[in-house]
Design a protein around this nucleic acid. Structure first.
Lengths: 202, 202
DNA sequence: ATCAAAACATAGCAGCGCTATGTAATGTGG
DNA sequence: CCACATTACATAGCGCTGCTATGTTTTGAT
């Protein structure tokens, strides 16, 4: 009945936008399509405008983040895994800080919440595994502890990515997570070793 | 030798920008000066351009934040005070989330670091008071613990202010800070009570 | 084969930050 | 006290932005 959209064009624009973001080039409607052969209208047929492009980029960012998180090799030590997930989260944020900032800028909307939930759920499952192995107290709510872990990781990532703290500050993740997990019932010495082990292998 | 700048104009523009930010109106060069009687050039003579305005607004934000923090009444319980400072930090962030976002957006530069340092120093002093009262272990570095407290506060504030977490999530501050301070040597039950007390009175 | 609908190219609009230029105001040196 | 140098300020316009209106081409269903 009509022409169909070419998914390749959509991916092309998305990749190019991500690349321009990574190389610190200003991403504008015209600079984005320049040299690609497609016209400015493509942005509107595929994303409905620049806002739509940013939203799509945000979801792309969460997709990549989820990929990085699920790529973390799980071990028999879920507390280590939890720290490894935190390290992967921070590594991803600093690998492409511009994309990370897009993910959490003022344009964050309800439509993005789904992708963020998936990120959170990855942590929740690991907390549940830790509970199953009696590392945490029985009254620990996995969603709450996962959210708290996220807050710590995001706080560090945000402060480092935006400038106030130097990259070395990421080391604070170890004592922060250790304190949190110890507070959740894990045995202090064992917890510290688990976290330290998970932290240094992203 | 020449005309002198009128500080009132500078304050007028700054206040108006903050107000427009609070009321969700787009802050542009022309909308900012519209109705004030001053011309667009005023933004350049006083701030050197829109970037300078954002920087000034950032510093204004930190000044207000520092005002809120120093307004927190200190007690004989420095751990309570630490939690109260955290609560004040979060209250300030959610009171005017737009100004808060400006403070930590991508434009954060070295010139802003001074104002941020002052915020951090407020926490450092309280940690030192806690150490003086033997609430924390002797080997605790005040700057490190203060930075970690900041990371927790900022993580929560950022996730709530940008959307991923609902305002109720601010309650996570209590278990997070309690875990951190307990890990620093404070006695668990006493710590929890101190934090809870400081948290509910901003 | 026909036709409607979707994809796309082009041109132009209002708005953006910024700057060049001209004018008015003001503190200072003679 | 006055003239001058210097700064504050107003206006107009430039190049850019995202966006849309319009016309054309392509394409799939009937």
């Amino acid at each position: 009945m009509a022409r169909t959209k070419d998914p390749a064009v959509r991916a092309l624009l998305l990749d190019r936008a991500a690349h321009m973001l990574r190389t610190r080039q200003p991403v504008t409607l015209r600079t984005l399509v320049a040299g690609t052969g497609v016209s400015t209208m493509a942005v509107y047929t595929y994303f409905g405008g620049m806002d739509g492009l940013w939203t799509a980029l945000r979801q792309e960012g969460f997709t990549r983040l989820n990929g990085k998180l699920t790529a973390v090799t799980m071990t028999a030590d879920p507390v280590r895994d939890l720290a490894a997930l935190g390290a992967a989260y921070l590594a991803n944020a600093l690998e492409s800080p511009d994309l990370y900032r897009v993910m959490f800028d003022a344009g964050f909307a309800l439509e993005d919440a789904g992708a963020a939930d998936e990120t959170l759920h990855c942590l929740v499952r690991t907390v549940e595994r830790a509970k199953a192995r009696d590392r945490f107290r029985e009254d620990v709510d996995p969603l709450e502890l996962a959210t708290q872990s996220w807050a710590i990781g995001h706080g560090l990532a945000s402060l480092v990515a935006t400038g106030p703290l130097p990259p070395e500050a990421l080391a604070h993740g170890v004592p922060l997570l250790t304190a949190l997990f110890t507070g959740a019932g894990d045995e202090p010495d064992r917890c510290r070793r688990s976290v330290a082990r998970g932290w240094r292998r992203p």
